[in-house]
Design a protein around this nucleic acid. Structure first.
Lengths: 193, 193
DNA sequence: GTCTATACGCGGATAGAC
DNA sequence: GTCTATCCGCGTATAGAC
């Protein structure tokens, strides 16, 4: 279709820089360098830095929604689909090792800044939480589907944090194997409670 | 003994503010307000903000070392001691819900900033990793003690991250119960591998 | 040791020409 | 829609008096 608009290029560059450097630590100058526009031109597209953050969060939401819908179609069973979720740790292993989880680190940063967009960023986590909950429900775990979703989310976050801190992609792989094993128990109906 | 020196007061205030607001987001003015000194006076005690960060990290290291030694003395069995570790999630539950884990969030922030003190902050995580590893060794898990230590560390980190994001202390309690159960398997020698 | 005054650069934001 | 020029406040840091 049409070429990317300048606006889209700004959002893309900001998305990447916010991930790699953090939101607060990324300046307009940083973004302008990547997009190759002047700093003044910025304000034609966004009236403040906060508005760029909003756009980045919305882009991430749209990206992740599309990804989850793909998994929904491609996965034949709920177990397959939940495995797709666990797999991102492997697929994005190198980046997670360097920069952590894009969703978890943004959430944590905005929480610490007590930023107005905090709640919006949490919708990203909530998106996965809800999607995972539905998968566990489909596995017949109506009673504790949300708890299981939270449990898996928490383990992913923890693994990402430590993999990043210790620069250890191998540890991440081992934990992923354990999560597969854990999931199999539930898929086989062999899990307790 | 003697009164706290101004230097100590600065470190204490910085420790608290770095935790609640993040390192980068905390200015000298913020610290000066708490300690009630002028900004200029700062540089008599520390020649730059980075040096304050070093001092804060060293204070946290000393504090945690003392805590681990206490657990070592008070806990009668390795299981007791590991339970003490899990318990901090409960003891500090309210603060974790508001600000996350003091160690994990600092580590993540410095990683994102690619800050020179990154490695120093990681020593905090490593302190717990090594201590936990020794406890699992004492439980007879020589072969995988470090993996188990990392696993427990990761789970704590993940639980802290989600409890903070969703402002949910109840979830944290439930996960702690699960960790107790998980630990019991190893203490009873009933765990696999 | 603590203060006031001040330098200096950076980051976000605005005005207005082209 | 993009640019240059510029403003302004904040944050780190320094100088030097008391």
């Amino acid at each position: 279709m049409s070429n990317k608009t300048t606006r889209d290029e700004i959002i893309e560059a900001a998305d990447d820089l916010f991930y790699r450097q953090g939101y607060e630590h990324t300046s307009f100058a940083d973004i302008a360098d990547v997009v190759k526009i002047s700093r003044g031109n910025f304000y034609h597209h966004f009236k403040s830095k906060d508005v760029i953050l909003d756009a980045v969060i919305n882009k991430r939401l749209a990206d992740r929604k599309a990804m989850l819908e793909r998994w929904e179609i491609e996965g034949e069973t709920p177990e397959d689909r939940i495995r797709s979720f666990i797999d991102i740790l492997i697929v994005n292993g190198a980046k997670i090792k360097r920069y952590g989880c894009p969703i978890g680190t943004l959430t944590s940063e905005l929480a610490k800044l007590n930023h107005a967009a905090r709640g919006d960023a949490n919708r990203l986590l909530m998106l996965f939480r809800t999607w995972l909950r539905r998968q566990f429900e489909a596995l017949g775990r109506q009673a504790d589907a949300d708890l299981l979703a939270m449990h898996l989310l928490a383990r992913s976050q923890g693994v990402a944090t430590l993999s990043n801190a210790f620069q250890d992609e191998e540890f991440l792989r081992q934990e992923v194997e354990q999560m597969y094993g854990w999931l199999r128990l539930y898929a086989a109906g062999a899990a307790p409670e």
